[in-house]
Simulated assay, not measured.
Amino acid sequence: MLMIKAIVRPEKTNEIMKELNDAGFPAVTKLDVVGRGKQRGVKVGDVVYDEIPKELLVMVIRDEDKDDIISTIIKHGKTGEAGTFGDGKIFVTPVEEVYTISTGQPGL
């Protein structure tokens, strides 16, 4: 199993979640977050905005679904040409165990 954490632009979240659902991946946790990437925020005049609103999408998935999910997030999360800063990042980490709280059963 893998955990995917995708930091995306808020205006792209609904489209990404719809496409994931349509592709058979409905289980997503969404959190409102703020932060900055390697561009260190946005400077407007003398003011630097370094708490830029983003959405964090979290999914625990089967290993074999990774490529489909990542390509869906990239396809529907990008705003333009390659290299547009601020579109976000995707992190993939292994998950050792998962349990359903209501039943205590292991696994997805």
Rank of each mutant, 00 (worst) to 15 (best):
K89F: 06
G77I: 00
N21S: 13
I74S: 01
V92S: 06
I70K: 05
V48G: 02
E51K: 14
E15N: 11
D67K: 11
I69W: 00
V42T: 15
T79E: 09
D46N: 14
I90S: 09
P10T: 09
N21V: 03
T79P: 00
T29S: 10
D50N: 09
I4M: 01
Y99V: 11
D46M: 06
K30R: 15
E55T: 11
S71F: 15
S102F: 10
V95T: 04
I69C: 05
K18V: 01
F91L: 09
E11N: 14
E81M: 07
T72C: 13
E19G: 04
P26F: 03
I7K: 10
P106N: 10
G24V: 02
M17Q: 13
V48W: 04
D68R: 06
K43C: 04
V28L: 04
G104K: 02
V60F: 07
V47A: 09
G45L: 02
L57Q: 02
T29K: 06
P10F: 15
M17D: 07
L2M: 14
E97Q: 14
Y49L: 09
E55C: 06
D32Y: 04
D50F: 05
T13E: 07
G88H: 00
Q105F: 00
D50C: 12
E64T: 11
R36E: 05
T29M: 04
L56H: 01
I90P: 02
L2T: 02
R36W: 04
V47Q: 13
G35I: 06
E19C: 11
P53H: 08
M17H: 15
